[in-house]
Design a protein around this nucleic acid. Structure first.
Lengths: 196, 196
DNA sequence: TACGATACGGAGAACGTCTCCGCTTGGCTA
DNA sequence: TAGCCAAGCGGAGACGTTCTCCGTATCGTA
């Protein structure tokens, strides 16, 4: 893995700038977790101990900041897909990973989902493609070696699970997301049913 | 049908007030359709030709305005459930109505969905229950007379379709929502699959 | 140590939500 | 028809948020 690739792209030359960037990411992680993806960027800057201008120089908009915060986790999530692939059967690997993806999207109060849904800039695309590729790999294998139905694209699958995350993100029933995912998985593994 | 019931509850005594309320609703319908549920309330007031204060007296918050705008459509939607019930088989009635519900939620850019997800105040509850009851009626019949699986609640079903609406509301592929709904319907009518 | 590029920070413009209160106006009563 | 008064209007303005601009401070280098 090219360790320096993703990081070097955004790391400033001066050490104080790099430090501020890290402080901003840490603060953003906190505040987003508390107040959701619509949290005040001013508050993030304040908690990071920098001015608003500094925040906006490092991250030109909310989306860029969200993407940066989630980048590591999403990379980890997609790495998990590889491991899942090695450990479990084709169907189980897909199911488990979708569960992890759902948990991730929900834990971030739809932030990750926001990345999938809204994509105003290029930064979101990275994560979108990353997730899409991970899902596509698992799905293709489940279609080849498992029982997943063939007429299903990774994009649709991700969109559906993203929808579950979005609609249950603020709900009070913590089990609901699991039930809905199980329902969807039933469809994924069930034979396509022709409609008369 | 008690025609005056829902209307009388909110109609002001003075005619100018009632007129302003109607103007506000019309403007809100326009602006929400253009800019989504996060549209500027000031802009709505401006386009209605009233001051912001007037808007906030009639509708204390965004949610109340959203609810009022959607109220008629939601009532119509739920009325459609009754008609569907009479015209089609149990399964078809459910499928068709869910399709209509999805179209409604998407057409409103997640407004209707916002009603389902966020419910800070009582006004949202009306619509939520209305929709839930309509869905529950159709689902119960499809479970009794049709092939819908028994371990499924109307709440879960609505939440799932709401999720489709949310995640596809801003998407560019207009067919995706239909595909996702079809997939979900496969699960609804497929036999529950026990997981080892 | 001195210099120049780099980055900081906060003032402030623009916009949004929502409130308050003095003025207007509709509808009832005589 | 005239007059009263409560219901209702509207916009100024307090306050929060996003995002920009530019004078100033600081880092890294020579």
């Amino acid at each position: 893995m090219t360790t320096g690739h993703g990081d070097a792209r955004h790391s400033p030359r001066r050490t104080d700038a790099r430090l501020n960037r890290e402080r901003l990411l840490a603060a953003a992680q906190e505040v987003f977790a508390e107040d959701g993806p619509g949290a005040s960027l001013n508050e993030i800057a304040r908690r990071a101990g920098v001015g608003p201008g500094t925040l906006y120089r490092h991250f030109p908009n909310r989306q860029a900041l969200l993407t940066a915060v989630l980048r590591d986790r999403i990379q980890a999530l997609c790495g998990e897909a590889e491991r899942s692939r090695a450990l479990y059967s084709a169907d189980d690997a897909l199911s488990r990973w979708l569960g992890a993806f759902l948990a991730h999207a929900r834990a971030n109060q739809g932030m990750g989902s926001a990345l999938m849904v809204d994509e105003p800039g290029a930064p979101g695309l990275d994560c979108h493609r990353l997730i899409l590729d991970a899902a596509a790999g698992l799905l293709a294998r489940a279609q080849r070696e498992g029982t997943a139905r063939g007429d299903l694209t990774a994009g649709d699958l991700i969109q559906l699970v993203t929808g579950i995350a979005l609609s249950t993100a603020r709900g009070e029933d913590p089990e609901q997301a699991h039930r809905l995912l199980a329902l969807v998985l039933d469809a994924v593994y069930g034979a396509p049913r022709r409609k008369g």
